[in-house]
Design a protein around this nucleic acid. Sequence first.
DNA 1: ACGAAATCAGAATATTATTCTATAATTTAG
DNA 2: CTAAATTATAGAATAATATTCTGATTTCGT
Lengths: 143, 143
Amino acid sequence: MDLIDKKILYLLQSNARMSNANIAREVKLAPSVTLSRVRKLEEQGIITGYEAKLNHHALGLDMLAFVLIKVTGDKDIESLLVDIPGVQEVHNVAGDDCYLIKIRTRNTESLSLLLKEKVRGESISTKTIIVLNTLKETAQLTF
Amino acid sequence: MDLIDKKILYLLQSNARMSNANIAREVKLAPSVTLSRVRKLEEQGIITGYEAKLNHHALGLDMLAFVLIKVTGDKDIESLLVDIPGVQEVHNVAGDDCYLIKIRTRNTESLSLLLKEKVRGESISTKTIIVLNTLKETAQLTF
DNA sequence: ACGAAATCAGAATATTATTCTATAATTTAG
DNA sequence: CTAAATTATAGAATAATATTCTGATTTCGT
């Protein structure tokens, strides 16, 4: 990975749909070479995918919450959490067999309903952090 | 927004670099029509962008943490948090003037250093949640 | 300096994006 | 209920792009 690869990564993080021709122009290389660099970054697993970012509010998902979930044994709660609609992230965090999930729902009701239906039975306790306002939200990495 | 638009959104969430021609094939519409639908979704702000997803480990960012930050007054801590390198998300959360940030760093040291240097001075208290293992992490929305 | 490996530019071709036009479908107003 | 207006559609034409190939150049280790 040299500076050109880093610039390619930067560009694709900013706009994943940028054409190969435009990337080539930006990095001042021939399109053919640029394409093979992108392919290599994909094959090496440095680029893991390309996602469209959607406006949650436009889709009626006004609620964002993080929920800390303390579980008892090693039940199969992981696959359960992963499959809950609206759950965007599931992390295993340090201390007390805890999971942290990031979840988007229509409103507070649908959130509490989901937690009641899907999570409560499998957990000792949950702590919900309600997001009022998001100032930044990106997957972009600076390096 | 009809079913075809939803399918387009689904496809672009799965692979933002899918060609318009392929999207058209999938939704069984002419490329011209498909393109104008995508443009409209962009103009309406339903699609807000396209991001390449990178492998953090390949970039030497092995550490992921969420940090809850309790602040005193309404200092300009927000722009400070947003600009810290590695910070991917900054949320204002309910209760006690708290912020929740998602941050990626090289290791525990660089995390504690960042917190010490940038955050501690501006905050009453911080609570750091260290992620051991991530089971799911996507911006995809199901609807 | 030398050879191997990687990187490069540029040409050729296949595929795609984009614009345009004409037609069909749907909605709206009277 | 009908006519006009709006919107959505397919398909053609062309501009741009992606992709593969070839051969030249550079890089790197020895």
